[in-house]
């Protein structure tokens, strides 16, 4: 395993020691533990995931990166409990996880506010508190003014933010995200990166973020896991020192992106033979 440590970048006049959300907690029980996981479609279909073992700490932001068809979404689906592993175990210490998908999958017959309220209702929040909580959650993604709008009246980025608010409404410690920004334009995606990072810092969620975008992974993750394809395995892992908010343009992100891309291409080349 290569361990890439980027130099801390200091902004502002003074640098004081401070602990981040992620390092604040005792590291005894991992939030997610995957042990010897193998997934095969059908009884003698191709092996999609092979012997994956990983552990994700509470409050960690992990990016799962890989080429199309490497099984990263399948791995996320198994952690979410939507699919079952062929062998091996998956433990989510908080019980279950919230999930956000590439398509916002908002209910088109409900307003943005009601979409969030439905999640609260299914969680068992009493009716009287739902409206207020939904507005708070929408305000967290800066959409309190759009609560009365229906999904088709919102832009793609706004819809994903409502979907984010809805998955936060589930109030689970773990948030699984399956290429949530892949369908957005670059400007919107850049803003949503900032939004997500801020929310992660504010709420202390454990986030597993699946993407095929190297820069996105380098921009967001505290830890980037690179997956190889056919069968899907964890090929490499990079840890980034958390030095506060990063930007996608910053040199550290570029440096890491180049390194990861190199290795990703190697993994893809292997499939040619």
């Amino acid at each position: 395993m290569i361990d890439t440590r980027t130099a801390p970048v200091t902004v502002g006049p003074t640098t004081v020691r401070a602990t981040t959300v992620a390092t604040d907690r005792p590291n005894d029980a991992p939030a997610i533990r995957v042990d010897g996981l193998t997934k095969r479609f059908g009884t003698d279909g191709p092996i999609v995931l092979e012997d994956i073992t990983l552990s994700i700490e509470p409050g960690e932001f992990v990016c799962l990166l890989g080429a199309s068809g490497c099984g990263k979404s399948t791995l996320l689906g198994i952690i979410a409990g939507l699919e079952h592993p062929t062998s091996g175990t998956v433990t989510v210490s908080s019980g279950s996880a919230a999930v956000m998908f590439q398509e916002s999958a908002l209910f088109p017959w409900l307003t943005a506010g009601r979409n969030v309220e439905l999640a609260l209702k299914l969680r068992g929040v009493p009716r009287a508190q739902r409206r207020g909580q939904a507005l708070e959650l929408l305000d967290l993604v800066n959409l309190a003014d759009a609560a009365h709008k229906r999904p088709h009246e919102l832009s793609g980025g706004m819809r994903q933010r409502v979907a984010l608010a809805r998955s936060l409404a589930q109030d689970r410690k773990v948030l699984l995200m399956d290429e949530p920004f892949a369908a957005l334009d670059a400007i919107t995606r850049d803003l949503l990166h900032e939004e997500l990072e801020r929310i992660w810092r504010e709420t202390g969620r454990t986030i597993v973020f699946v993407t095929h975008n190297v820069r996105e992974a380098a921009r967001l993750g505290q830890r980037v896991l690179l997956m190889s394809s056919r069968p899907g395995r964890i090929a490499n892992e990079w840890r980034l020192a958390d030095t506060g908010p990063r930007r996608i343009e910053s040199p550290e992100v570029s440096r890491l992106s180049i390194e990861i891309t190199e290795q990703l291409r190697q993994e893809i080349r292997r499939n040619a033979h």
Binding site: P8, V16, A18, T243
Partner: peptide
Amino acid sequence: NTSTSTTVPSI
């Protein structure tokens, strides 16, 4: 590797 890695810029 160094203690400075956990520092966050103070704003």
